[in-house]
Design a protein around this nucleic acid. Structure first.
Lengths: 336, 336
DNA sequence: TTGAAAGCGCTAACAG
DNA sequence: CTGTTAGCGCTTTCAA
């Protein structure tokens, strides 16, 4: 168990070994000013031979700029969240930033404040918040006035730089797909929304209204697919339910499982569409009809927005991506 | 777009408003020494009214101690990884630490060095590395000598404080379960291993050897379930393959999908077991027989180990958890 | 208990 | 181009 801490090598050690002044070492490290080739080389050699690593804390304190960015989120491990975080982190790393994670458990003031404080204490260059749920929404509001922030979102909104995946368009398309198959209407199982209504739900509603068909009551589920399974069992008892649009693929899988438990077949008896195009959506039996969401790409766009914000470049145009619909096996014509 | 930066409130502002010296403010913040109730109260009031937030950079620089911990990993979004990260982050937050993420793309020296440098520059209090893959293994080795580290792992190993989920035991149990069902032998589809052989594979091999049956060649897949689907199609053509143990649930789902594509039924024609008990494992049709792994708990244990290491407490006993086997629908007796 | 003084390791002016 | 001089915001001696 070799866990020994070596005495830290500082910039002045490097300066001494290289035979130059401390600021000169600083200059070659930061590239803030030109240094003669000769000295630069000596500094570089000294850095290499000493294994010198600048202290982020000292740099941040002295320069009042840091190279860390904060990722604020209500969750870290669920599919869309984890992928978005991956996208942000990848892009951040590619741009020389280090990412730290701050999770906001709930939208309660205490949690939001704790998260805000944790973020601000690090004096991050900027922050990306996953505005996917109420905690995210609350954290975004609290952070906005203190530090450069960009939001990752499912619905376009003004007031904050953001990258958005336009869910409502795809939700409407999926709903129309189902209607086009001959279903009288489309039921909707909603995953926990970020606000009063998400793009997925509003797109579904809009498509129904435009088609002039009934808008059945929404059913809510938690993120746990087991709750969707319950709903599936319930729905199996309602003969007029022939098509269901689910808020995400995990929910669709749970729902299908529940329908199956109750003896219903998908898509023969009821058609089910998911959302996201989860990596397992195509493996499921039946393979899910869904809308592909590229959360990692969303995260990358978010970081690009932040970069633009920080460098004072033109704020990028509102970054909207339309998730494409992918039709597979879980939806089909209404039984005759 | 309200993104204005306020002038930072510093500790001396607080001192002035409270009518005390700077060190006194520091004392009430850190609790490093006793302060009279009167002054403490005034300081607290000043902090509240000014909205003061200590600068992490300054604290770290002055005290040579930080309250951030690093999470080093080869991946952030795959199921087991994301869950483990969640566990570490939750426990870290509960203990007052902020987590930053450093991903090591490959085990190549360049990537490992870049990651190591990024970690060390932050002068973290400690680091948790997910030793789930070659990048993790390499990063662990590089970090060990510089900073307190604990590893999260699937196989017990000495030389480093670690939290482990004993995969080999569960893999053997799963294999025996299959053998007990009457299968002549059990084939194995392996997910990318962390070293030359993972606990999942060695447990499977051991169970086969102990039972005195043939050890069929291992098939490798990538993390993408689509590759497992290919293998499933191939395996469908081999009549002697009646039982398959997969390295994880996503792979099992892909494999089952592939078998299904080729007209085979699970478990009637071939039994398939997964590993992890992914949230969708129970929803799948057929529901997966698997071994439950609590990665989030693993992460929490890892942080507890780190805490012990940092506080100089007795190093916790080697933290091993046996994943329980859960039998569902995807495995059954061999066809007669 | 408290304040004064002295840095932590680095960058930012400022002369030259 | 380069060195000198001042700090950044905080904690840590050290006296009092």
């Amino acid at each position: 168990m070799v866990t020994r801490r070596e005495k830290t090598v500082t910039i002045s050690d490097v300066a001494r070994v290289a035979g130059v002044s401390v600021p000169t070492v600083s200059r070659v490290i930061t590239g803030a000013a030109r240094v003669s080739d000769d000295k630069r080389r000596r500094v570089l050699d000294a850095i290499a031979s000493l294994g010198y690593r600048p202290s982020a804390a000292a740099q941040t304190l002295a320069s009042k700029r840091s190279n860390v960015i904060g990722i604020v989120t209500g969750n870290t491990s669920r599919y869309g969240y984890a992928e978005a975080i991956r996208g942000v982190e990848e892009a951040a790393r590619a741009n020389g930033y280090l990412s730290f994670i701050v999770v906001v458990e709930t939208a309660e003031p205490d949690d939001v404040t704790a998260a805000t404080d944790a973020v601000l204490r690090q004096s991050p260059a900027g922050v990306v918040v996953l505005k996917f749920d109420p905690p995210g929404v609350a954290a975004l509001a609290a952070l906005q006035q203190h530090v450069p922030v960009v939001a990752l979102s499912g619905v376009p909104e003004s007031g904050v730089p953001q990258a958005v995946l336009d869910e409502s368009h795809a939700a409407a398309a999926l709903t129309r797909h189902l209607l086009g198959l001959g279903h009288r209407t489309v039921h909707h199982v909603r995953v926990p929304p970020s606000g009063k209504e998400d793009g997925r739900t509003s797109g579904w509603r809009r498509a129904l209204l435009e088609a002039g068909v009934d808008v059945p009551p929404v059913r809510d589920v938690s993120w746990d697919p087991a709750t969707a399974r319950e709903i599936g069992r319930d729905l199996a008892a309602e003969p007029d339910v022939t098509a269901v649009f689910c808020g995400n693929d995990e929910t669709a899988m749970g729902l299908i499982r529940g329908l199956h438990d109750a003896g219903k077949r998908v898509p023969e008896d009821v058609s089910v569409a998911g959302f996201d195009d989860h990596p397992l959506a195509a493996m499921f039996l039946p393979a899910l009809t869904t809308a592909r969401q590229d959360f990692a790409e969303l995260g990358r766009h978010g970081l690009a927005q932040l970069q633009a914000l920080l460098t004072g470049a033109q704020p990028l145009a509102l970054d909207t991506v339309d998730p494409p619909v992918v039709v597979r096996e879980s939806t089909g014509p209404v039984a005759s």
